[in-house]
Simulated scan of single mutants.
Amino acid sequence: MESKNKLTVLIVDDSDIIRNSLKNFFEDYSIEVITCNDGLEGIQKAIDHKPNLIFLDLLMPNLNGLKMLQVMKVINDLKNIPVIVISGNTNKQNVIAAIEAGAEKVLSKPLKKELIIKSVNEVMGEGLLIKYAHEKILNEQDNIELRRRLVKFFLNGFPEKKKAIVEGLSSRNKDLMNVAIHEIKGTGGLIGYPEITLLASKMMLQLEQSNVDWNSLTFEVDELFNLVKKVEIPNEEITI
């Protein structure tokens, strides 16, 4: 019989790779994981499942992370659920806004396992992941296999994002480009290519300007596509 005290974590992030990475991470502890990709669905999932903890992205379509936090605080069943915000843009303004909206912690992407473990233990106050932190050591083969899966997932989903970026560039649609580039930004470092994250961050700063330099952005889009062409799936075999 399943324990009634089993921990449930809700992950709200528009990045497929972030959602699946966190899902795999928590399922290693036999923790139940629920995922969704925007704040509107996140509110409904939280109401339906009453999770013990929420990992929440800031920049998402439909309802962003800050708005979701604000809505949660006026719903009695949700207002006491601890929330850890995760974002690729953890500048001082975003951190303050998230904490003021009710977040327990703000973590910067790409996420590191050690920091996830530390943050969950601190927020939940039960030392839930301490045993795992001391006992589970990924060997070299495990690390390569995990990275292989993440890189494959990234490459399989990239054509759709590339199409959105090209369409956004052609139509000067900043919102369309922002959504696709935001996800690429959040996963570049996660798959071992921090230069992709850095370039995507630079492009998003361009898109925030009132007068976008579209010629410069066009060159950066070409550079981004060339960087992605260099992404390789790690070898399955290890040479010793």
Rank of each mutant, 00 (worst) to 15 (best):
Q70V: 09
L198P: 00
Q206W: 03
I137T: 09
M1L: 00
K230D: 15
G42R: 14
R147I: 09
L22Y: 08
A103D: 13
L115V: 11
D213R: 01
I47V: 15
I43T: 01
I54D: 03
G127L: 08
K92S: 14
K67T: 10
L58E: 05
V120I: 10
D28A: 12
N139M: 00
E104N: 06
K162C: 06
V228T: 07
N89H: 06
I43N: 08
L66D: 00
K185S: 10
V179T: 08
L207S: 04
K105L: 14
V123D: 06
I99V: 15
R172K: 15
M203V: 04
K229H: 13
L129F: 09
S108H: 10
K6I: 01
D77K: 14
L138H: 11
E104T: 03
L59Q: 08
K161Y: 11
N235F: 14
L128P: 03
E167T: 12
L66F: 15
N94L: 02
F26A: 02
E27T: 13
L205Y: 11
V228R: 01
V166E: 09
S216D: 08
I130Y: 08
K109R: 04
L10P: 02
L205A: 08
V9E: 08
P159C: 03
E122V: 01
I96M: 15
M68P: 14
S216K: 10
K79A: 05
M68G: 15
V231T: 12
K229M: 12
N76V: 05
V166N: 08
L115R: 11
L198S: 15
P61V: 00
L53Q: 00
A200I: 01
Q44C: 03
S108D: 13
I196H: 07
V12T: 06
D16G: 06
D222A: 11
E237C: 04
S170V: 02
L198C: 01
F158Q: 03
N94S: 04
S216Q: 13
F158W: 14
L155Y: 12
E183Q: 10
Q206G: 09
E122N: 06
E223N: 12
K4M: 04
L63E: 11
K118I: 00
S21G: 01
E167C: 11
L150G: 02
